[in-house]
Amino acid sequence: MSFADWTLSIGNGQIPTKSFNKNQPSDWISIPEPLLLQPGSHPTSTICDEIYTDFQAKSYRASYLTSRAIVTPTNKNVTDINKHMLQQVPGKVHTYFSADTIHSDSNDCARLDAEYPTEFLNTLSFSGFPDHDISLKIFAPIMLLRNLNPDIGLCNGTRIMVTYLSTYVIKGLIMGGTYDGSVVVIPGDSFLIRLCYAMTINKSQGQTLDRVGVFLPKPVFSHGQL
């Protein structure tokens, strides 16, 4: 049974359910063995090696990066997988940081500084926004989180392979879609980007992929996610 057929069967109510406790409702389903990877002692490495086969030799090819991704429910899982993959990319790391101070023009700057110290601001993480710092390398794939310039293909969800990194500018090639292969330049300090070796299940909607791994460290319960 293919993954598509199996998920369709779930939606049609054709997959039997079971319970792990006789006092709880029968609301669990089993994933067929042919669709599973044995996680071993390092589940992140296992799924990365399976989806990004021969990565060292092909990590610089846009066609290779365009055709595959790992999807997972939460931003934390996405961050962990992206960090793992970036470590395998040769070359120098370039790290960008977000603003982590209160604007000095505020009339209540002293109180705000006391209530929101830098250490606290740097720990904040929100859906649709990257973390305080983002590390990139040449040939790493990134995704736009906002519309920048739809007329040239810079839209929310556009994937780009990085080809140049500087303090204020990121240059790259659009991967996939109408503008596939187009050279684009985006501001490096805009924080409208995120690495996309992995992406959340919700963010993957609309992407065209040939090879996909689904990383589920916890049960998926949100309607439509699986």
Rank of each mutant, 00 (worst) to 15 (best):
T44M: 09
L86H: 04
K18I: 07
T17G: 04
V93S: 12
S104E: 13
L36F: 00
T178W: 05
T44A: 11
S19Y: 11
S104V: 15
T46S: 07
S30Q: 14
I81R: 00
P150M: 10
I142E: 01
I170W: 07
R159F: 02
D210P: 03
S125C: 13
E119W: 12
V78D: 00
G40I: 06
T79M: 14
N149P: 04
N82T: 12
M175D: 09
F55N: 09
T178H: 11
T118C: 05
T74R: 12
K83A: 06
P73L: 04
K83E: 14
R146L: 04
F191E: 06
S104P: 12
V89N: 01
E50T: 12
N82C: 14
N75R: 05
G176C: 11
I138A: 03
S67A: 14
K203M: 08
M85G: 01
L86A: 07
S222R: 10
I10A: 05
I193T: 13
L144K: 00
D180Y: 08
V184W: 07
N107L: 12
I51F: 00
T66P: 00
G157C: 03
S204L: 11
Q56V: 06
Q205E: 06
H132T: 03
K22L: 08
L112C: 08
V78N: 06
A114I: 11
D113P: 01
V212S: 02
E115M: 13
Y60L: 00
D210S: 15
F55V: 07
K92G: 10
F55D: 10
H132C: 04
V93M: 13
I81Q: 00
S9F: 09
V183T: 08
L144E: 02
D100L: 02
R111D: 15
S26E: 13
T118Q: 12
S135M: 12
V89P: 02
C48M: 01
N82Q: 11
Q205V: 05
P117T: 13
D54S: 14
T163L: 03
L145Q: 11
I138L: 07
L144Y: 05
L173A: 08
P117Y: 14
L36Y: 01
